[in-house]
Amino acid sequence: MDIIDLSAVPASPNNLESFLDQLCDRLALDYASYAVIAPFSDAVRGYANYPAAWKSHYMQRQLQNVDPILQKAALSIAPVDWSRFERDRSFKTVFYEATDFGISPQGLTVPIRGRFGDRGLLSVSRAGPQREWERLKRNIMPELQMAAVHLHDSVMRMSAPLSSNQQAKLSQREVEVLQWVAAGKQQQDIGDILSISPRTVEVHLRSAREKLGALTTFQAIGRAIALGVIFPV
């Protein structure tokens, strides 16, 4: 991903908004926002590249208290298309008003759950014909999932109390796979060496990348070396 790496820069509101901008540019989306709901307190923190007028309207009217994205999407394990929300009063309050500010109600929210009961929500929207939206959705979903977890981990890292044991531990298998990748081996070869299928190798590698907060395997290797988890070869 040629996108700002939030784990390599301070996760400031500016950087988070740049990340959202770049995400929109790359995936042909109109707007993106990210909100995190803290465990136990239900406090919400949000970042968005919406027009400033809509942001201040949202805050003035305290729409977070009725926004179905926050109230409902966090309950799903799968991305929730906004068309799934009931057309009730809350929906109309938030989405009809958003339309007045030029924000399309055609969108979806990717919910991410953290290990500590924290929940993050990456929302994206895009105006246009529904058929195009359905096609776009199918194409970008895995990438949205990875962007969502990257954002979530970066924001959670900002909150100091959790940061010490925040990072998920790597398994022996993940370390082995990283070590062999660092040594220049291909997935097929690593599978042969470890007597596991190439897809099992890939799954361990993907998990290791996310645990290390890395967007690419290259970054994951660098970080694993820096942490002393694997040896430079």
């Binding site: 998920a168 398994s171 996310e210």
Partner: peptide, 21 residues
């Protein structure tokens, strides 16, 4: 697998990825 079924993983931490359920 991160909790009750941890013994199945021989004490190793579970996989963790947004694209794995």
């Amino acid at each position: 697998l991160a909790d009750i079924f941890a013994p199945l993983l021989d004490g190793e931490p579970p996989l963790r990825a947004s694209t794995i359920w």
